Simulated assay, not measured.
Amino acid sequence: MKNFLFYFVLVLTPLLLFGQKQPQESIIKSTPVLPSSKIAILKDVDVIFNTRMAFDNYFVDSEPMSSQFSVNQLRFEIKGKVHEKVYFRFRNRYTKIPDPNTIDNISRAVDLAYLSIELAPQTKLTFGKMIGDWGGYELLTNPIEILSYNVINDKSDNFQVGAALTYSLLDHKNTFNFQVLNARTKTFQEQYGTTAPPGITQTKTPLSVVANWKGHLFDGKLETTYSFAHFIDAENANRNYIGLGNKIKTGKLILFYDFQYSKEDLDQKCVITNTVKTKYSYAAQEVSYIDNWIRAEYKIQPKVDILLSLMTNNSYWNGNPDPNKSNRLLTSYGIIPTIEYTPFLDLNLKFYVGYIAKKYDYSSYAENNFNAKDISTGQLSFGIIAPLLVL
């Protein structure tokens, strides 16, 4: 009997082991959930959470107003290649109201949504929603790095749907970009409504044309981004813009200087319109804005940077019907000192302390005729800046 049991177990054991081995082998040989071809594509794709969070303290005319924690910036970004000659980029802003647009059929919360196709080694064609290549480094800098914008960039529609053709010279030191974009994100009625001046009607082609040159000079010590743009805002109401951006790198110091000039037949920034609305119910005509922006970045230690931004704006109403007019209605100033500390040299995450001080100085003409009042504002922030690359 014992012998029978011994032989029975001896025969049965391999059968049991074989039965257990079968499922394991079938799992190993099954098709993976994510095919290898898809994994290869992911090697050329970046997923980024552009983040700035802070404890903000606000002041008006040196009086404390409020203090609270804020998510100042949260922009989800995914970009990369889907083909050897096709590149895509998408960025959505979660700190902006996602109101739908009636011209380009995409939410204003979407900054970027475009495809770039390489037509030749030096030429590419881009379609979709992209940043207007207005010229200047303030706008080209990652938004999480800009604590506050100057007037022109702050009041403009900087992301528009359109097409662009980019050409680089053989030395790759000079790049030329030509864009045809929508001039605005809203319809004429939504933009101006009942404030449209008499005789000003909507155009059938609310478009802008942009020409930009980016240069690398003196062995890369000087970089430039210069632009001219023409906007069709309404019938017989246009906008002309010039932007001159300069970047100088020397040792541990990086210095930026932007000059921007916007001449507008119909006030798009609305700074002048809002100033004179106590007496005039229509959008101002024949206005101009001049911005100067300077930013210095200096690395005092491998983990410590100090930054200083300076900005000015002059706003003019050249079309004021008053014979005793003063064209300049407002001058504003801004200064933003910042200290950044990077605790990890292998991760782009920074703690920062920054103060945004701005002063709005109205001319005596604006004060006497439109009851404009000078004001100063401040914002002290303690926070974190991090473009978190998660893939």
Rank of each mutant, 00 (worst) to 15 (best):
I27A: 10
E223Y: 01
D305F: 05
T377D: 09
M1H: 10
L5D: 10
G319I: 02
Y7L: 11
V9K: 08
K277Q: 14
L10Y: 13
L147C: 05
A211P: 04
V151I: 14
R91C: 00
T342H: 07
G251L: 04
T126D: 08
I306G: 00
V151A: 15
A164C: 01
T126A: 07
A211K: 00
T195A: 10
L244H: 02
I242N: 03
Q24E: 09
P32T: 13
I41A: 13
F69R: 00
L181H: 08
Q20D: 07
Q20Y: 11
Y226W: 12
V161D: 07
N238P: 02
D104S: 05
S36I: 15
N236E: 06
K277F: 12
W317Y: 11
F178K: 03
L380I: 05
L345V: 01
A54V: 01
F228S: 13
L139S: 08
D361I: 12
Y94W: 12
L12R: 06
T126S: 11
V271N: 11
L380M: 09
Y114T: 02
K277I: 13
Y241K: 02
W293Q: 12
N72K: 06
S36Q: 15
P98F: 02
P14V: 04
G354C: 10
M311P: 10
G193I: 02
N182F: 04
F127K: 00
G136A: 01
I339R: 08
K38D: 14
L217F: 09
Q189M: 09
P323K: 03
L181F: 12
T273M: 07
K252Q: 11
A386W: 11
P387Q: 06
P321D: 02
D61K: 04
E286Q: 15
M1T: 08
A366P: 06
S37F: 14
Y137N: 03
S381G: 06
N320V: 03
V33K: 14
N292P: 06
S148I: 13
N292L: 13
Y226A: 04
L217N: 11
V276M: 06
L16S: 09
H216W: 06
P302A: 05
L169V: 09
L169E: 13
L380D: 07
T331G: 12
L5S: 09
K299Q: 14
K373A: 12
Y333I: 11
K96E: 14
S208C: 05
F59V: 02
D346N: 12
N368R: 09
S376L: 05
R239S: 14
G319N: 05
E63V: 05
E297C: 04
T51Q: 04
T331A: 13
N236M: 00
S363P: 07
V390D: 08
I384K: 00
T224K: 02
N236W: 02
S36N: 15
N3A: 09
S227A: 15
A366R: 08
K221H: 15
L112P: 00
E84R: 14
A283F: 15
Q202C: 03
A113P: 03
Y362E: 10
L308V: 01
N101M: 09
G245M: 01
A296S: 08
G319M: 06
P302K: 03
I384Q: 00
L330Q: 15
S70R: 09
V271Q: 11
D111P: 01
G378D: 04
N150D: 12
L391A: 14
A183M: 06
K43P: 04
Y355I: 08
P121C: 03
I144W: 00
F231T: 04
